[in-house]
Deep mutational scan, measured.
Amino acid sequence: GQVHVGDTTYHFPNPEEARKFAEKAAKENNLQVTQHGNTFKVE
């Protein structure tokens, strides 16, 4: 799974890890998570 936060892309071998990371980043920054397959975008 990939997580895009601003201009930075994080790669995770496990989509579940990617999702947890995205949700945590979104919560900390008052942002939203959008999911496209195994790619998550925090914005």
Score class of each variant (00 low, 15 high):
G1L: 05
G1K: 03
Q2L: 14
Q2S: 13
Q2I: 15
Q2D: 06
V3R: 01
V3S: 01
V3G: 01
V3Q: 01
V3E: 01
H4N: 08
H4V: 15
H4A: 06
V5Y: 13
V5M: 14
V5A: 04
G6K: 06
G6S: 05
G6E: 05
G6N: 09
G6F: 13
G6I: 05
D7Y: 11
T8G: 04
T8I: 14
T8R: 15
T8D: 08
T8E: 11
T8F: 13
T8S: 10
T9M: 10
Y10A: 00
Y10P: 00
Y10I: 05
Y10D: 00
Y10N: 01
H11F: 14
H11M: 10
H11I: 11
H11W: 14
F12Y: 03
F12G: 01
F12T: 01
P13I: 10
P13A: 13
P13F: 07
P13G: 09
P13N: 12
P13M: 09
P13H: 09
N14S: 14
N14W: 03
N14Q: 04
N14T: 14
P15N: 07
P15W: 14
P15F: 15
P15V: 15
P15D: 05
P15G: 08
P15M: 15
P15S: 10
P15H: 10
P15A: 14
P15I: 15
E16L: 08
E16Y: 09
E16M: 08
E16S: 07
E17N: 05
E17P: 00
A18D: 00
A18M: 00
A18S: 01
A18Y: 01
R19H: 05
R19T: 01
R19S: 04
R19M: 06
R19P: 00
K20Q: 12
K20H: 08
K20W: 09
K20P: 01
K20E: 10
K20L: 13
F21I: 00
F21D: 00
F21T: 00
F21E: 00
E23C: 14
E23Q: 10
E23D: 09
E23S: 06
E23Y: 14
E23G: 04
K24F: 11
K24R: 13
K24S: 09
K24P: 00
K24G: 06
A25D: 03
A25Q: 11
A25L: 15
A25G: 02
A26R: 02
A26M: 03
A26Y: 02
K27I: 10
K27R: 13
K27D: 06
K27T: 08
K27L: 12
K27S: 10
K27H: 09
E28H: 09
E28Q: 11
E28T: 08
E28F: 10
E28Y: 10
N29P: 04
N29G: 12
N29S: 11
N29Y: 15
N29T: 08
N29D: 07
N30Y: 06
N30W: 06
N30H: 10
L31G: 13
L31D: 04
L31Q: 07
L31E: 05
Q32T: 14
Q32H: 12
Q32G: 07
Q32W: 11
Q32F: 13
V33E: 01
V33S: 03
V33R: 00
T34W: 09
T34I: 12
T34R: 09
T34K: 09
T34A: 06
T34M: 07
Q35E: 06
Q35N: 06
Q35P: 04
Q35I: 09
Q35F: 06
Q35G: 05
Q35M: 08
Q35V: 11
H36E: 12
H36V: 13
H36K: 10
H36S: 11
H36Y: 14
H36C: 15
G37P: 01
G37M: 05
G37Q: 05
G37L: 05
G37T: 03
N38H: 07
N38S: 08
N38C: 07
N38W: 06
N38D: 07
T39N: 09
T39A: 10
T39K: 06
T39Q: 09
T39V: 14
T39M: 12
F40A: 03
F40Q: 02
F40D: 02
F40G: 03
F40H: 02
F40Y: 10
K41M: 13
K41F: 15
K41A: 08
V42F: 03
V42A: 03
V42H: 03
V42P: 03
V42T: 04
V42R: 00
V42N: 03
E43Q: 11
E43T: 11
E43D: 10
E43S: 13
E43P: 04
